[in-house]
Computed example of a mutant assay.
Amino acid sequence: MKITGYRTLRTHRNWGRPVGDVNGFIASGITEVSVLILETDVGLEGVGIGSDHGVAELFPAIEGRDPRAVVSLYDSLLARSFKAGHIGATFGGIAILDSALWDLKAKAADQPLWRLLGAEDRFVPGYASGLDIALDDEALVAFYQEMAQRGFTAGKLKGGRDAETDIRRLLLMRDALGERTRRPALMLDANESWHLKQAVRYVTEVEQAVDLTWIEEPLRRWDVEGHKRLSAQVRASVATGENLTGLEQFRALLAQGAADILQTGAVWGITHFLRVAGAALAHDVPVSPVGLTANPAVAHAAAATPNHLSAEVQDLGAPFGVTVDQEYDGGGIVLGDHIGAGITIDEALIRTEDSHGNWREAAGPHVRPARAGFALTFPSPLATDSEARN
């Protein structure tokens, strides 16, 4: 079997609510989704979902080769991007190809991907995450009540602007998730919006009212010393790493004990997740993949990872024209029996739809605001530009 080509599609996800974080939000709740279909000479095709950045430049590294040699091909993709460096958006293209390769490998073996990767249990523990900075209290409660009905007993709030507001909303989230446990796990995600002393003061205030399980991305992603110092001064675990890409970027966090929970961005793919998880396992550090809506195949890798803690579940639906063989129940993801990663694409349907969105619109969370992390006081998350200046 040889790789002969690929094709890409753009579809969208309708979240049904505004989604974002302290840096901004997408008011429409509609975001773009990239789909890649890897073609072979025997007619078997592999599907990847994520980012298709740089795919045209990367594809020659695997063209004409056997897709079942996934790990070798992943290293060839890294080598192809040598001058670009093991960093940044290039990893999106590597990851979507990698995910499609793993899908192909499992299909060739006539197995679900979770079983091919060595998992015995198809269940992946998860936590609810509403990307909820722009939700009012009523909508916030409704989201977490729905997730509680699916058995979720842990949730993550997007915050970081006002401790009193975050405390109130964390307590609302706690009550909404309290259907199955008296003490839900509560997490707070600041999305790199603080400097160290801000983080210490903020988390300390929150912890006076809330038993915080972890504080996520409190500081800039590269601040190893800051994360280590913060972890020593607060009760909550420090979770970070989701925006790091090359494996070598995680080395200092692990070597210096700066991350209590190591995160990987699901968009960076399966081989990347497995390697980061293996490095963390050697340091007795649990791992947690974020945003499995961006790359559902990573859930299969999580099922086979001994130090996997909990995976972020942001949405119960799927992108337009995409079907994923999995369910949300029991507080996590229940993977199906379809061979491969269980992803089915209706290309004809996708081509009939012209809805689109862009994570990188100026008001969205993927564009860092001016002077982020340098405010002495914080405006309301829903404040207008003029209100924020006054």
Rank of each mutant, 00 (worst) to 15 (best):
W222N: 13
A199Q: 13
V70W: 02
D41V: 11
D315S: 14
I87C: 08
V22G: 13
E63L: 00
L292K: 07
A259M: 00
L73E: 01
D162H: 14
L212F: 01
I133W: 11
A109P: 05
L131N: 03
G155M: 08
T245F: 09
A109H: 10
I37S: 06
A95D: 14
R229M: 14
P306Q: 11
Y328S: 05
V324N: 03
S81D: 15
G357Y: 11
R13N: 07
W222K: 14
V200P: 01
V124N: 02
K228M: 01
D41C: 07
R65N: 05
R351L: 10
T344E: 09
Q233R: 08
H12Q: 04
D162F: 14
G54L: 12
H12G: 09
G50F: 04
S355H: 12
S288G: 14
A255M: 04
F82M: 14
V287C: 05
A185D: 06
R174D: 08
L382P: 10
D103E: 07
T4M: 03
T271Y: 03
S76R: 10
G226A: 06
E217R: 07
H227D: 04
K197F: 14
I167H: 05
S81M: 15
S355M: 15
F82Y: 11
T271E: 08
P125A: 08
Q314P: 14
G24T: 08
L101R: 04
A303R: 07
G178C: 06
K197D: 15
E205L: 13
Y328V: 07
G43K: 00
Q256T: 04
I261V: 15
A185K: 15
E164A: 15
S355D: 09
A259W: 00
A56N: 11
I133T: 05
D325P: 06
G50P: 12
L349I: 04
A280K: 05
L104M: 01
P60R: 10
I30W: 00
I87T: 15
S237W: 14
T90Q: 15
A176E: 00
L78C: 12
G246Q: 12
V285S: 11
S231H: 09
Q314S: 13
L254I: 03
Q263R: 14
G241E: 08
F82G: 08
L117Q: 03
Y144R: 00
D166N: 09
Y144C: 04
T323P: 07
G160E: 03
G246K: 05
D354T: 12
D354G: 10
R221L: 13
A236Q: 12
G29A: 04
F378E: 02
L186V: 02
L316Q: 10
L186A: 10
A252G: 02
A301F: 11
L253A: 08
S81Q: 12
G340L: 03
L135W: 00
N191D: 13
G336A: 05
G64S: 01
P289A: 11
H308Y: 13
A266Q: 03
G85R: 14
E45M: 13
A302L: 13
S81G: 15
I133R: 07
D66I: 03
V367L: 01
V206H: 02
T90L: 12
P381D: 02
G5D: 00
T153W: 06
I167F: 09
H53M: 12
L274S: 13
